[in-house]
């Protein structure tokens, strides 16, 4: 175990932990934003530069600061390292720059984008961005294309995080799409219009941080903040079967994998679970999904505080204690 200090908070982590994962153990403001890093995808990270942090002290042995800001998602902590994230004006200024770069070619079409409300770029820009754009140039344009029976690609919105190519590499049998061209002209595309069709291809939609890859069965049918996410599961031979049903009334609008507080999927689901079971009878509904309070999805619905307490808790409390139990509202 080695000691590391992030924004003045000291903690012990195992050797080989990245700064990002150490910060996530603390949680809250200390956690750097991540647009391309994805815990369950090997080799992800380092590309978006959103998670740059300042290392004020390299290690206990070599206390020199690192000359440049480092990407926290792919830099391992050293014993005695001192990291500055949200307490460093330099880091915050750079982060404003990164938002600006990511939005230089972004169409900012949130009002008509299906990802709005659960978009990582939207959240990132909301937290760190400028109020208005300084770029007055033409943004790059692409026509939306179908890259298979289930997925629509809006290249205009893509921030080239490479996550979807890693899903294809690591989850599916073969990758039929990738990054073509170079620099600002780079685009995600399929190999000669070859359709992406694979049992796990739907996960590309879940890992996409923006609205570049959207679900063709869900597009334009509803806004996410009108839907109620419900945890549900079924017996599936291909995957864990643990999903979120996005419902409005009794109708299931879409099925996705479960995302954690960092918008990351830990258990990927198969396309059968995702697209072939839109009936609640196929699922064992566990209950409403806990959504982070700041998320727009919680709007006018419920928050963590109002989730009903489990019955076991009630039975264990005798009447005497019940009076003093005021913490729960």
């Amino acid at each position: 175990m080695i000691k590391v200090t992030i924004d003045g908070i000291e903690l012990e982590v195992e050797e080989g932990t990245t700064i990002m994962n150490a910060a996530r153990k603390i949680g809250g403001e200390v956690v750097p934003p991540a647009m391309c890093y994805y815990t369950s995808l090997k080799g992800s990270g380092g590309k978006c530069r959103a998670c740059l942090v300042k290392v004020a002290q390299g290690s206990a042995k070599d206390p020199r600061p690192m000359p440049k800001l480092v990407a926290s998602c792919c830099t391992n902590v050293q014993d005695g390292m001192v990291v500055l994230n949200s307490t460093s004006p330099e880091v915050l200024e750079t982060r404003r720059g990164i938002v600006e770069f990511l939005l230089v070619n972004h169409p900012l079409d949130c009002p008509i984008c299906d990802q709005a409300g659960e978009c990582e770029l939207q959240n990132f820009a909301f937290d760190h961005g400028l109020q208005k754009t300084r770029s007055e140039f033409h943004r790059r344009e692409f026509d939306p294309i179908d890259i298979g029976p289930h997925i629509k690609l809006h290249m205009t919105r893509c921030i080239l995080c490479y996550r979807c190519t890693m899903v294809a590499d690591q989850l599916t049998e073969e990758r039929v799409h990738g990054v073509l061209w170079r620099g600002e002209a780079s685009e995600i595309s399929t190999y000669i219009q070859k359709a992406v069709e694979n049992d796990f291809s739907g996960n590309m939609i879940d890992v996409c941080p923006v609205g570049a890859l959207t679900d063709r069965h869900f597009r334009f049918r509803n806004r996410v903040w009108f839907l109620n996410p419900m945890d549900a599961h079924r017996n599936c031979s291909k995957c864990s079967g643990k999903v979120v049903l996005w419902m409005r009334g009794e109708e299931v609008y879409r099925v996705t994998a479960r995302k954690d507080q960092y918008d990351e999927v830990k258990e990927f689901i198969c396309n059968e679970c995702r697209w072939d079971h839109y009936d609640t009878k196929d699922w064992v509904v566990e209950g409403p999904r806990a959504v982070e309070k700041w998320s727009v999805i919680t709007a006018n619905k419920y928050s963590k505080e109002t989730v009903e307490l489990p019955e076991q808790l009630f039975s264990k409390l005798d009447n005497a204690k019940w009076d003093s139990f005021e913490g729960v509202t």
Binding site: R49, G97, V104, F137, L160, Y162, R182, G183, S186
Partner: peptide, 21 residues
Amino acid sequence: YHHESCGQCSPCREGTGWMER
């Protein structure tokens, strides 16, 4: 540099094009 940027990381990919314009 705009033409030769590989397009992997965002500051260089977007910034070089912006500077050029």
